[in-house]
């Protein structure tokens, strides 16, 4: 087990480094460190477009399900989820570019 994961309070950190904990000497530490760095960079890149992902991943289905709950139809004969995706993606894109939601 990697040195940082010995204490139970560091369990969340262990999740990110899960393959390091499971490595058990199969890979050199330098390789494991590089893989961890790549993962962190990838996550940072992901966070930079998070508003767009949030628009698609959360706002879109919320809009569709709220419309269903209240019995509203989407305009122009669209499916509710397509309408939700349109609004969610555009709003998320705006937030990604502007850095704020409104």
């Amino acid at each position: 087990m990697a040195r940082w994961a010995r204490h139970p309070t560091q369990v969340p950190a262990m999740l990110l480094h899960i393959f390091a904990a499971g490595n058990r000497g199969l890979l050199p530490d330098s390789v494991v460190k590089t893989m961890i760095t790549i993962m962190q960079v990838a996550l940072q890149k992901l966070f930079s477009i998070m508003p767009l992902l949030f628009g698609i991943g959360f706002i879109a289905p919320v809009i569709a399900q709220v419309m269903t709950m209240w019995g509203w139809d989407a305009p122009f004969g669209m499916q509710r989820i397509v309408f939700g995706l349109l609004i969610g993606a555009l709003w998320g894109l705006y937030a990604t570019i502007k850095g704020r939601w409104i």
């Binding site: 992902l53 991943g57 959360f58 289905p61 919320v62 399900q65």
Partner: peptide, 10 residues
């Protein structure tokens, strides 16, 4: 995201 796309958005 998982809840929302599985019908539990609300």
């Amino acid at each position: 995201f998982t809840m929302a796309w599985n019908g539990y958005a609300i």
